[in-house]
Write a protein that binds this DNA or RNA. Structure first.
Lengths: 243, 243
DNA sequence: AAGTGGTCTAGACCACGAC
DNA sequence: TCGTGGTCTAGACCACTTA
């Protein structure tokens, strides 16, 4: 591997190891080289190797056993996601084996609802940019997402808005903002009327509803939104690990 | 603080800091002492302090800002859970402000269904211990959980079985097994008949369904199960963070 | 006994934010 | 400029598994 300064060494090692796992250099269920072996191989300290392995362990990709070794978790290989899957819809659709695409239904500026104002720390009636988007798995609509962003965040010089872009990228490109964390509420819900029609489901169909608010490092709310998620097509599969 | 060997220093520091947050020594939104300050204060290396803070950051409890400082995230204080909330039902109910209790509906040995056999790496018909439990928030039933454990895991000398115990503790006490990770599928579902009656909901009520399989470090499946979760009473609120 | 991951230290340098 | 968190190193010792 070529070590380049400027991007953290740990990230580079991370990429190389994930690449080797993808390419089958290390096979599912197999035992990996030891930490000191990696340390020699990459010319980095064992501590650095360990931060990389800790990250992979937290995602369930590997299993480490004291006194024994580190093994690739063959059950996580294909599909499964981290919590991120709950909202990184494109990646989720992709990992379920479909071709993801986004259709922008509407991009408009309007006054914030009371709930939006409350969640985004605005006054009711302050302008927000409202995005309404439909996510497709291959040709089938599977997720209907509605988001609101305080209009004052938006640098209009960057326009026109591309409604097909992911929220995270949207915030970077048009607002120069970075998400630090999100709070999600998961519930079940019925879809009706226009929503059902867009999702090509019968009125009264059961779906998962995900309400989400994104915040930045300064604890400023950036975006809020509701998504309806067709769990008859997409599986919502999560991994939970412990120390 | 009294430093005791035998439990890791990082865990002890962790406990002390969480205690101070609970007790209001550090208040929501407030800036914490610097890493080197903690390092001096506890007489441990900065690296140790950092592993503790990293853990808290991953749970969304604190926000760290380079060049500035570390702040307590006031939005996470009260209720919110980590992914663990999806299945550590007692803790979830508690954090929603209710008194949790568990009623054991049935504890029986029976042959594994085809699906169970598949998920637990058994032959169909191999015996499993089937637990059926109802979780209450105060006096209201909110979660109906059905789990199956391969019977060969169970050390009968430890019996009789206590159906009111949590799965994690059950595995430790009766099977000497430790959970390493779990894979969950979240979907929406209707409850009917007996299930609806137990949950005191009308037949055809909408609920969240959580299917889960637990594994140990050797990637051996330990338990599988289905849970119905009344999201009209309990909120399922998750936190997602990024590096 | 040898090798593995788990914990911890002391110290270095860097990037960034506030003053 | 100074203090903060972010990254990395080299080395030590321990606990555990396997042979």
């Amino acid at each position: 591997m070529d070590i380049i300064r400027s991007t953290p060494i740990a990230d580079q090692v991370n990429e190389v190891l994930r690449g080797r796992m993808r390419d089958g250099v290390y096979k599912p269920g197999e035992r990996l080289p030891s930490e000191s072996e990696f340390s020699k191989q990459f010319g980095v300290s064992r501590a650095t190797v360990r931060t990389v392995l800790a990250r992979m362990e937290a995602e369930g990709l590997i299993l480490r056993k004291q006194g024994d070794g580190t093994y690739i978790n063959e059950r996580i290989q294909d599909v499964n996601t981290h919590l991120g899957g709950l909202w990184e819809f494109s990646r989720l659709i992709e990992s379920s084996g479909y071709q993801p695409s986004i259709k922008s239904l509407s991009v408009e500026s309007r006054p914030a609802s009371e709930r939006e104002a409350n969640e985004l720390a605005l006054q009711p009636g302050d302008p927000v940019l409202a995005l309404r988007r439909l996510f497709y798995a291959d040709r089938q609509p599977v997720i209907l997402a509605s988001n609101a962003i305080p209009y004052r965040f938006i640098d209009e010089a960057q326009g026109p808005f591309d409604g097909q872009v992911r929220i995270r990228e949207f915030l970077v490109r048009y607002c120069d903002l970075k998400i630090a964390y999100a709070i999600l509420d998961v519930s079940s819900a019925l879809v009706d009327g226009e929503d059902a029609r867009l999702l090509e489901r019968a009125p009264g169909a059961m779906m998962l509803k995900i309400h989400i608010i994104f915040y930045d490092r300064d604890n400023q709310p950036l975006v809020c939104g509701d998504s309806y998620y067709d769990d008859s097509v997409l599986r919502l599969r999560l991994v939970q690990t412990w120390g």
